[in-house]
Amino acid sequence: IFLTQLQVFALLCLYLLEVRGERGPIVKTITTTSMLYRLGEIFNVPVYETPVGFKYIAPLMLAEKALIGGEESGGYGFRGHVAERDGILACLYFLDLMIKTGKTPSELLDYLYRKVGPHYYQRVDVQFPEDERQTIIDRLRNNPPESIEGVKVVKTDTADGFRFILADNTWLLIRFSGTEPVLRVYAESDSQARVERLLEFGKELAGV
């Protein structure tokens, strides 16, 4: 089985909270999974959210003595170690999770989903003419959806792009990349088919 970086993030949090019995805040960027909020509720730890980039995650990790911080690119940092992406330690922790639980990655994912429910995620990158940037921003700002597929949009977040959070915790995010000339469209929901429909809706909403 292939695990996405968001599934790995949630499993690393589960490892630290349940297997190791540690407690402390979780720091995530807006592009990472809402599974972390559910884990925060289960284990009674706060979850903080930042714009995209470890330059936002690391200072908050240090200020809040966070247990773990991570982003959608697959970078994770840990309390008591370097407040930066630490791939070696992340791999060691994941191996220890497998050893301590006796579970394979697919079994671990099933175990996680039994706790937080199924979560599916995908991102698409769309190239666009640079002179259309402001037009896209204006289009998204002036035409926010009140509902998507019949589910009410309960929150619109513009801290880093345009994120629409639905009543069932599904979310759709449209933002410009900070590193290359592409528009990124992200979605997370309870089925892969729905994620794919959300991505198409997001592209249509942005007009790309």
Rank of each mutant, 00 (worst) to 15 (best):
L3V: 05
T4H: 05
L11Q: 00
L12Y: 02
Y15C: 00
E18H: 07
E22L: 07
P25H: 00
I26A: 06
K28I: 03
T32H: 01
T33G: 05
T33D: 02
M35S: 07
Y37I: 04
Y37S: 08
R38E: 13
G40N: 01
F43Q: 00
N44K: 10
P46Y: 13
V47S: 04
T50W: 09
F54L: 06
K55N: 09
Y56R: 03
Y56P: 01
I57S: 03
P59F: 13
L62A: 12
E64L: 11
L67K: 06
G70C: 02
G70D: 00
E72A: 02
S73G: 04
G74W: 07
G75P: 05
G77D: 03
R79A: 06
H81P: 02
E84A: 12
E84Q: 07
D86P: 12
D86H: 03
G87I: 04
I88P: 10
A90T: 02
A90K: 01
Y93K: 11
Y93W: 05
L95I: 06
M98S: 06
M98Q: 08
I99D: 07
T101P: 06
G102S: 03
T104C: 07
Y111K: 02
Y113H: 09
R114C: 02
K115V: 01
V116L: 05
P118H: 12
P118C: 07
Y120W: 06
Y120S: 10
Y121W: 08
V124C: 09
V126H: 11
V126Y: 14
V126I: 15
F128N: 01
P129A: 08
P129Q: 09
T135R: 15
T135D: 14
D138N: 12
R141H: 13
N142D: 14
N143T: 06
N143W: 06
P144Y: 14
P144Q: 14
I148V: 11
V151L: 10
V151Q: 08
V153E: 11
V153M: 13
V153N: 12
V154W: 15
K155F: 14
D160E: 03
G161R: 10
G161F: 07
G161Q: 10
I165W: 12
L166N: 11
A167P: 12
A167R: 14
N169V: 07
L172Y: 06
I174M: 08
I174V: 15
R175N: 12
V182S: 10
V185T: 11
V185A: 08
Y186E: 03
A187M: 12
D190L: 10
R194M: 12
E196G: 08
E196M: 09
E196A: 14
L198I: 09
K203R: 15
K203Q: 13
V208A: 10
V208N: 09
